[in-house]
């Protein structure tokens, strides 16, 4: 745990807030004074109930929105707008329907490297289309693809620009379980292979357990907080199929479910002693620790 604290904070969210004007005057605070950080090469998931502000956080990280207060820092620099260093996989895949698969991916590649030759752009695009298993479909248009294939194109497009950070907003929530599983495998493989730093929003506890190194728990809004950061105790070489055979699986899963079912709602009223918004506690639920025994102020 201590080496986590000493690792360099690649991404650091520092006291960000988002307010919206209320219908009858005044304003709603979706969240304020939100702090957490992510390390280089790490896969983080954020879970929390609908409407707590997860997409807002992701959009701030993407640079699509600016926080009302606070800053998001990446690699020592405050985010001021979108950047090619941070690729987004949108929930709605957001493919350009008038372009082919290859056209969509090439569009990203040529945006990143405007002075590349057409051949070079094509090669790079094809490399990532192959990586997500869409070779042979590169000349199809999005309307000719299944939901899973479209999301694959979205993944290829995001990865093709070789971003420093991959941001994903519930990328698989619209897919059937089988397709979701394969895509999770692919994303995990690619991220492990390349040491990709990734941030993902999910509602699926098993998805978080399989993919994430760390899971950020966000309480219900308005006034959402980061309740804690959960470290994944499962071994790095975990497989999706036998995830539940891992000794710590149930401890972790129960911890997350318990949070979603009760603590996400009650946390605000029963803030644990020593809780600091600036340093959300880091916990590591394992089979040997009783629930919450691993809780420690970071």
């Amino acid at each position: 745990m201590s080496d986590y604290m000493n690792a360099d904070r690649f991404i650091s969210i520092e006291g960000i807030a988002r307010h919206y004007p209320k219908a009858g005057g005044g304003q709603t605070t979706i969240f304020d004074d939100l702090w957490f950080s992510m390390n280089r090469g790490e896969f983080s998931c954020i879970i929390g109930h609908s409407g707590c502000g997860k997409t807002t956080v992701l959009n701030i990280l993407a640079g699509l929105e600016l926080p009302d207060e606070g800053v998001a820092i990446v690699d020592g620099k405050a985010i001021e707008g979108p950047s090619l260093d941070r690729a987004v996989i949108f929930q709605s895949h957001a493919l350009l329907p008038w372009r082919t698969v290859l056209g969509n991916v090439s569009f990203a590649v040529s945006s990143k490297w405007p002075d590349w030759s057409a051949d070079k752009v094509r090669d790079q695009a094809m490399r990532f289309i192959e990586k997500v298993g869409l070779k042979g479909s590169e000349l199809k248009r999005p309307s000719e693809l299944s939901g899973g294939m479209k999301q694959r194109v979205g993944i290829a497009r995001a990865l093709s620009i070789e971003p420093k950070i991959l941001l994903m907003d519930e990328p698989f929530s619209a897919l059937d379980a089988l397709t979701r599983g394969t895509l999770q495998d692919e994303v995990r493989r690619i991220c492990l292979e390349t040491g990709q730093t990734a941030f993902m929003i999910t509602h699926d506890v098993d998805e978080a357990i399989y993919l994430a190194d760390r899971i950020i728990l966000m309480t219900n809004g308005p006034g959402a907080m980061v309740a804690e950061v959960v470290e994944n105790p499962l071994p790095r070489n975990r497989g999706r199929i036998d995830l539940h055979k891992q000794p710590d699986y149930y401890a972790l899963r129960n911890h997350l479910i318990d949070f979603l079912v009760t603590r996400s709602r009650s946390f605000k009223d029963e803030i644990p002693p020593g809780y600091e918004k600036r340093h959300p506690p880091v916990v590591r639920p394992t089979a040997t620790t009783a629930p919450n025994a691993g809780l420690s102020a970071a």
């Binding site: 699509l64 979108p82 090619l84 941070r86 987004v88 957001a94 945006s111």
Partner: peptide, 21 residues
């Protein structure tokens, strides 16, 4: 659609190129 514009924004597409592509 906002999502297409967001794609262009995240890819830092220049205004003129965005208009045409």
């Amino acid at each position: 659609r906002k999502e297409w514009l967001n794609v262009a924004r995240t890819l830092e597409v220049r205004p003129l190129r965005k208009a045409f592509t």
